[in-house]
Amino acid sequence: MNLFRLLGDLAHLASIFILLHKIQTTRSCRGISFKTQALYVLVFLTRYVDLFFHWVSLYNFVMKIFFIASSCYILYLMKYRFRPTHDPSLDTFKIEYLLGPCFVLALIFNYHFELAEVLWAFSIYLEAVAIFPQLFMLQRTGEAEAITTHYLAALGVYRALYIPNWIYRYFTEGVVDPIAVVAGIVQTGLYLDFFYVYFTKVLQGQKFELPA
């Protein structure tokens, strides 16, 4: 464990609490892509199958359980509790375009051709692009509540912090995980446009609005 990774994980945790807070306080999931949230459930379920056979640490175990449970809970809130506040006509990204290629990539690029490894690689690729439906929705509506942008920023920061973590690990432990690194860089890259607007507008106290 190093500081970058710890802060990254904390940013990830923060993003989930921000999202829960947004849904609970506004009693609405307006502006949140159900598809992206559903993809995260799939990401966690396929990545953490090793919960059953690979013990890492208590920290790792608790976090995995939390990510699975909280993502399922968010899906429940969106699907049942606050269903009327979700507008499927804005959430129109076709996730088949993400699932198919990620699955094919996982079949080709994995560390070992066995079920758990292919699922793991699939989860890495899918996580990298799971934010697409959300960003697409943002693009369509052209604006977002501040709290929704804080959620996205925390999620982006989480991924961005994993990059110095990998650099640090390369120099201190000599380990590189090329699949995670390449996917992680792609994933972070997807947030660049968002970050630009977030830092130049939201953090200056302005409304998050995309240029027309």
């Binding site: 090793d50 690979h54 890492v56 790792n60 976090m63 560390y111 793991w120 973590n165 380990v175 995980d177």
Partner: peptide, 10 residues
Amino acid sequence: PSELPVKDEL
């Protein structure tokens, strides 16, 4: 030698 990366990250 193809050693699998240790999967200790989340």
